[in-house]
Nucleic acid binder design. Structure first.
Lengths: 335, 335
DNA sequence: TTGAAAGCGCTAACAA
DNA sequence: TTGTTAGCGCTTTCAA
């Protein structure tokens, strides 16, 4: 497992090792034929440049960290795919870190990454408190937050316009004839969810509807959690015609509970989600939802971060994308 | 973004920098109070060890590469989650590489990783030809293959017993009364699929059934592809009572096509999958399937790799896990 | 056009 | 117990 170094090549070529370095880096100050000869030799000897040795001197690892809560979550894994793609096309690789939704672990990972000398980090925060928790470290590493709207915080982020998305959702349901729309998933501790909630409320105001909630506060975004809460919900009388779920995963849980309770979607009850995760487009699921444009979010996050890195960190950018409604089959027009 | 180094701390503490190094590494050859003092100083000055500088001298980056075809695929992302978890618990981080199902890109990524001096790589091959394509590089980097059975190849791998799984599937269907079972997804260019196919055939033999295929060769494992093929299939008369799909994603496509064709599952037709991806457990989907134990596969791959690394590469291991049947609602007992 | 040498931040062998 | 020094593999001045 001993590797060929620049010195080995130099020796074989009978030149100094700085010459080899020049040949490799495509420097102009070297004669065409020595370059050729050296390059050929490198091939023959299976030389691969040691990226970390280079990193030490050029002060750049061409490595980005992606810190997210859980790569097995379909929303995250899609983001990750696009981020990797975009990063690679710009010559970077990604170190993947799962924070498992713990701010502490998140912080720990972040510190580790600064030790690893990654060039920057993209962070999908585990909670709204992430920003505060990470604040002391932010000055030490170019960072862009992804997926969470940090409002006026002086840090770069790219997210979707959650307020607008929720507003659009209500608008859509209203146009379909719904007047009694239950919002499912009001959640503390997440700006994203606060904004969605506000969007819901504002839309209700705008259309003269009364906001309705299920009387529970949320902690989780999982399918299982949505299922459990929906189960309680369906044990009570249903005095609404549509449910607007704060996330698709919640909606999936609702779907299951509805099935078990014999409530037909969309026949008896309309259901609208938010995020447009892969699962939502699956046959038999066909969830109508507000989409977060994952590919765009991803590439903007990468671009934004690389800008920051390459232009030596002047200021920050907030980019907020408008979501779109994806119409499938979980909402129906009512009389 | 200038970082505090060991020298800065040494200067501040009025000691030589090797003393600081010793304090940091918890070496016994240092007095308790100088250690304390230095450690405190490190905290105060926000010192973080430069991992790459250390890596240069200790010849270990504590970095593993995970090369897979596509992290957005739910099967892969689950694997990735568990791999990251296990790796982290052993003090390693993961570099994520998507090969996008191209052997060429796969190879390229592999080379890149050897340049990055990762300590090892876990590779979920994009095709059966991956092994051959990577062979010349394998000697230069500890590698374990994951998910694909490389048969007698002298390289470490961990995979599921695909032959056995397929056999079990037929057995299950047989016990339910099915005698005409169509195998959907016979696929060239993948050992995994060859083994599943063989398992199917052998089970048919064992139970006196006639193997049935759809007369198409497969290239893809996606939902869409399964859907398109199933569509053609359902245009012809149905002379079987169950479909055994080679992958859950294929099964999902079949589900959709069936829905559109007005074929009820499981009432009219039973459907059995393979893999047990997350989606399969979703409400309304409820696919009965053969499970690949992802968590176990992941941790075994990591352990196997770390063994290899720590014990300086003596030989290889083949680990083949037995899959289990997950009974849900897509198969029914027939008379 | 090429070579010599310094240095990136760290560990480890050797001295003191 | 502590300091000095070499060196990991590379890039990059500065000389030649």
């Amino acid at each position: 497992m001993k590797n060929v170094t620049i010195k080995d090549v130099a020796r074989a070529a009978g030149v100094s090792y700085s010459t080899v370095s020049r040949a490799l880096s495509g420097s102009p100050e070297i004669s065409a034929d020595t370059r050729e000869r050296i390059l050929r030799l490198c091939k023959e000897m299976n030389y691969t440049t040691n990226t970390i040795a280079r990193a030490m001197v050029v002060h750049s690892t061409k490595l980005l960290a992606l810190i997210l809560t859980d790569i097995s979550n379909p929303f995250m894994s899609e983001l990750a795919y696009y981020i990797d793609q975009q990063a690679r096309s710009r010559g970077y690789n990604i170190i993947l870190c799962n924070s498992s939704r713990s701010t502490e672990l998140e912080r720990e990972q972040f510190e580790l990454m600064i030790g690893r000398k990654v060039d920057g980090v993209i962070l999908v925060p585990s909670e709204s408190s992430s920003y505060e928790s990470l604040k002391p470290l932010l000055g030490r590493m170019p960072t862009v937050f992804l997926g969470e709207n940090l409002r006026e915080a002086p840090e770069s982020y790219v997210s979707v316009d959650n307020h607008r998305g929720a507003f659009m959702g209500v608008e859509y349901l209203y146009a379909l004839g719904h007047r009694k729309i239950l919002y499912f998933g009001k959640r503390r501790g997440s700006i994203t969810h606060q904004l969605r909630d506000e969007g819901y409320i504002d839309a209700c105001k705008a259309y003269g509807l009364t906001p309705r909630y299920l009387n529970n506060s949320f902690t989780s975004t999982s399918i299982k959690y949505g299922y459990q809460l929906a189960k309680q919900l369906f044990a009570q009388p249903i005095d609404y015609t549509a449910i607007f779920a704060a996330t698709d995963t919640n909606a999936l849980g609702i779907l299951q509970a509805a099935e078990e309770a014999g409530i037909r979607i969309p026949e008896t009850l309309s259901l609208l989600g938010f995020d447009n995760i892969r699962d939502s487009g699956l046959p038999r699921i066909n969830l109508t939802t507000i989409e977060q444009p994952k590919k765009l979010l991803a590439s903007m996050a990468v671009d934004s971060l690389l800008d920051k890195i390459q232009n030596e960190m002047t200021g920050y950018t907030h980019r907020v994308l408008t979501p779109a409604l994806i119409e499938r089959k979980s909402c129906r027009r009512i009389v």
